[in-house]
Amino acid sequence: MSSSTTAAAPRKSAGGRFLASELSVLFRRRRTWALLAALAAIPVLIAVAVRLSSGPSPGRGPAFLDQVSQNGLFVAVVATIVAIPLFLPLTVGVVAGDTVAGEASTGTLRYLLMSPVARGRLLAVKYVGAVVFCLAATFTVAIVGTLMGALLFPVGPVTLLSGTSIGVPEALLRIALVCLYVTLSLLGLCAVGLFMSTLTDVPVGAMAATVVASVVSQVVGQLPQLEWIHPWLLTQYWLGFADLLRDPIVWDSFAANALLQAGYVVVFGALAYGRFSTKDVLA
């Protein structure tokens, strides 16, 4: 008996399996783990360097660096601050830039489309995959930071920017909140990367363009002459998570960031769809 009676097959299943398959492919790639390992190296380096040096160096280096030797939890915070301007956009740029162009370059894009995966669905799944990588990336930095801090330094209650002191569990929660904030900050960049990725069949090109976009945005953000454009910059709120370290938490910057990132996701998501839905897949 052949199993070819298509009537027995489900007419159409939910889209969850393709997403699961996408994530499994993403996390079975050695490259993904290399990127996460590179990110994990940041808190390790910071913790070891502080441990080996004699005492704190107040006033120099990234914010909170002077606190690390008194409270290991700060390794996670310092490492996140260090990772935000370059390392996180770099790794996210690699993954987001690879989304469509990478499939095109291996020739798997045409087979996915013929499976069939509708083009809009493909973009959505690819985007969600990149966002999951952002989550993994930011939490990698924070978790490795926390572990290294606990290993090399004393861990205790943390004094917030507003002066109140919170216990370790509450502090860990705040660190997780910072991770979510950073992930949120990267949503726009993911959408930019997705769009870039629909423009070319050469993944490296899309990756570079995405990273350049984040760098240019940060450079423009440094120029007071261009202050009028600052509120619209992708990177405007990237380091604005200090409000999450107050008591009570001030959600203003979180909301402003979410709105800005949502704007980028909508605009670049639409551009990516506009480009990809009509694109001839010749690779």
């Binding site: 298509t6 027995a8 097959a9 489900p10 007419r11 159409k12 299943s13 939910a14 889209g15 399996r17 393709f18 699961a20 398959s21 499994s24 492919v25 079975r28 790639r29 050695r30 291996t106 020739g107 798997t108 894009l109 045409r110 087979y111 996915l112 013929m114 499976s115 069939p116 995966v117």
Partner: peptide, 30 residues
Amino acid sequence: ALVEGPGFYPFLSGTANLLRLDAADRYVSP
């Protein structure tokens, strides 16, 4: 279809590649 040569993920096994492409097809039974 086989169009313009095969296209597969070099870092996955033959089986894993086919499972992946099959998972993208919503009309077949998992």
